[in-house]
């Protein structure tokens, strides 16, 4: 036999198509459990927080950095007896606003739909300097914690501190980030080479959920961790 004719098209799956009840009854128990969980109230937001509110640091970004710092350090410290010195995440990784009102599991899925996990990298002071330079060039409100960075009016670094102290060249710092950035995302190339890397196998989203469960009302603020003097 030979191929004589080909007809090709696509058919939209529209709501005019009947729902197959056999399929729907298989889905139903999964859906019910999911919706219950998604609607579980974990915490409360007194205001609406957006990553667009703020110049070099934002309330929602500071919240994300605090979550990674606190929840991440709990696991990191238990495993290694060391402590996280600083956190760096990416501004683009905040995928949604947090709306005023109840914070639910779904909120965590909206803000962080990806499966990224926390990674702690041991870096020498010199690489921390490179990170500061990166931040000064990026001029973006990448979420940070444990870092104080002040830029002058030309975006040159006038002060860069870790845990309130000047960076010591040969000291090892423990910087928490996510696996996306560690692997070169957003052109953050200062994570490698490094002294060591610790994969916490702890998803950022799960850290958010754990944090929200502990905090009755969130209260993140824009502060002076990353600023520019005019």
């Amino acid at each position: 036999m030979v191929l004589s004719k080909i007809e090709g098209k696509q058919i939209g799956i529209k709501d005019s198509l009947k729902i197959d009840q056999d399929f729907d009854s298989i889905i139903a128990p999964y859906r019910t459990r999911l919706e219950e969980d998604m609607n579980t109230v974990l915490s409360y937001a007194p205001e609406t927080y957006s990553k667009r509110d703020g110049h070099l640091n934002t309330a929602i970004g500071n919240l994300m950095a605090e979550i990674v710092f606190k929840e991440g350090n709990y696991i990191f410290n238990k495993r290694t007896n060391k402590n996280i010195d600083a956190v760096l995440l990416n501004h683009g990784g905040i995928r949604s606003i947090i709306s005023k009102g109840n914070i639910t599991t779904e909120t965590a899925f909206q803000v962080m739909p990806f499966e990224n996990s926390i990674v702690v990298v041991a870096l020498k002071g010199q690489q921390m300097d490179s990170m500061m330079t990166y931040l000064s060039y990026a001029k973006r409100a990448h979420p940070i914690e444990g870092i104080t960075l002040t830029l002058d009016k030309n975006y040159k670094i006038s002060e860069a501190l870790i845990q309130g102290k000047p960076i010591i060249k040969d000291k090892t710092y423990y910087l928490a980030t996510n696996d996306y950035l560690y692997n070169g995302g957003d052109r953050m190339r200062f994570f490698k080479p490094n002294d060591s890397v610790y994969y916490l196998d702890y998803k950022i989203r799960n850290a958010m959920i754990d944090y929200f469960k502990k905090v009755d009302t969130i209260n993140p603020k824009i502060d002076n961790r990353f600023t520019q003097t005019k």
């Binding site: 036999m1 030979v2 191929l3 004589s4 004719k5 080909i6 007809e7 090709g8 098209k9 696509q10 058919i11 939209g12 799956i13």
Partner: peptide, 27 residues
């Protein structure tokens, strides 16, 4: 996201029913 389903129909004819034009494609 399962918004569409693709559908391609292939028609086969016995060997000497083949036209000189080969396979016609209707998209």
């Amino acid at each position: 996201y399962g918004i569409n389903l693709g559908k391609i129909d292939f028609y086969f004819d016995s060997e000497n029913n083949k036209t000189a034009d080969g396979t016609s494609i209707i998209v």
